[in-house]
């Protein structure tokens, strides 16, 4: 066993005192995602006469991530949403004590399937784009339909707010931008002012917002089924159109695989919420602003030396430009340039 495998085995022994002969092997870091470090591993042990053989995922806090994540948030969301009909992994142990693996982490099931990268020119869904698109919108609609209080998620950010979700989110992202921006970007600041001057209507229903629901953040199997929605670090309570808009962003557009109108109709059917297209337009600009803040955070994390993942640098440079350029295009359509 490698050093990390031995550490994980020791932790499992601590959490499962009834387990005998725990062996951890095949541990390897999974490429992709910079909010948390993700490792896959294989574990075997015996409980009485029963031999257990599991493939698991370990999610550990990054030293500095793409997003500002509350360390136990993702684990708690997975726990709360279990049994709600959404494809999500089962979770087992949350560990906040850094003595085990240097930083907090949690352990969950490794789900079958693979992610489809939105950043490749080839078909990321192996010919299953239509089926994936249908499920993508239906699952997101199901999420919006869930009563967040009934599943115990009112403790999420904004969970106690009666209204004004757009302002709460905009305030949050502006504060993160203030904290991380080395070179002020007038286009982003201008778009933020526009969003404040032109607020969207209150949502028909406050919902669980995944926060990063898009191509690349779910797994699909060979037969074209979405097997797991992942990366819930930015989950909060808010306007469900935030998630709808996020997935439509041209950096990772689901519309590449499934027509917009059909997708929105599927979402409406699953959520029971009618989409206000003007409000959706507001959230599309918000999406570009939020993305810019995330890329700024990535650049800041890399520049400070806290996280030298190349994804962080490339996001800061390339993705940052993409979304500032997108903001400018959107502001042009809003008449900002005359």
């Amino acid at each position: 066993m490698s050093s990390l495998e031995a550490q994980v085995a020791a932790y499992l022994a601590h959490r499962m005192p009834e387990a005998v002969g725990i062996v951890v092997d095949e541990l390897g870091r999974i490429y992709g995602g910079s909010s948390q470090e993700t490792f896959r591993f294989h574990a075997t042990w015996k409980e009485g006469e029963i031999s257990i053989d599991r493939r698991l995922i370990l999610r550990r806090d990054a030293t500095a991530g793409l997003v500002v994540a509350e360390r136990d948030l993702e684990y708690n969301v997975y726990r709360a949403l279990a049994g709600q009909g959404l494809p999500i992994p089962g979770v087992y142990f949350l560990e906040l004590d850094a003595k085990w693996l240097d930083r907090p982490f949690f352990i969950m099931d490794m789900c079958p399937g693979k992610p489809g990268s939105p950043f490749v020119l080839t078909d990321p869904y192996d010919g299953h784009g239509t089926a994936i698109g249908e499920q993508y919108w239906s699952i997101l609609g199901m999420l919006a339909a869930i009563d967040y209080k009934a599943v115990g998620l009112e403790s999420l950010r904004n969970g106690a707010a009666p209204s004004g979700y757009w302002a709460l989110e905009l305030d949050r992202w502006e504060a993160i931008l203030d904290e991380n921006e080395a070179l002020i970007e007038p286009a982003v600041r201008g778009a933020m002012r526009w969003l404040r001057r032109n607020p969207p209507p209150e949502p028909a229903k406050a919902s669980i917002v995944h926060g990063d629901y898009r191509s690349g953040n779910f797994l699909f199997t060979e037969d074209g089924n979405i097997s797991a929605i992942l990366d819930w670090e930015m989950c909060h309570i808010g306007d469900p159109l935030e998630d709808v808009a996020w997935g439509l962003d041209p950096f990772w557009p689901i519309t590449r695989h499934y027509p917009l109108d059909e997708g929105l109709a599927r979402w409406e059917a699953a959520s029971g919420i009618a989409i206000d297209r003007a409000a959706l337009d507001w959230w599309l600009l918000f999406t570009a602003v939020k993305a810019c803040v995330i890329w700024t955070t990535a650049a800041s994390g890399f520049a400070s030396g806290k996280n030298r993942e190349m994804t962080m640098a490339l996001s800061g440079i390339r993705a940052g430009h993409f979304h500032r350029d997108l903001i400018l295009k959107m502001m042009r359509t809003r008449g900002a340039m005359g």
């Binding site: 430009h321 500032r324 400018l328 042009r332 340039m337």
Partner: peptide, 20 residues
């Protein structure tokens, strides 16, 4: 209003020149 629009136009130019 005209100067505001010209600032937005300048931001377009700046972004284009700074494109990776």
């Amino acid at each position: 209003k005209a100067l505001d629009q010209r600032i937005w136009q300048l931001l377009e130019t700046v972004e284009a020149k700074r494109a990776p």
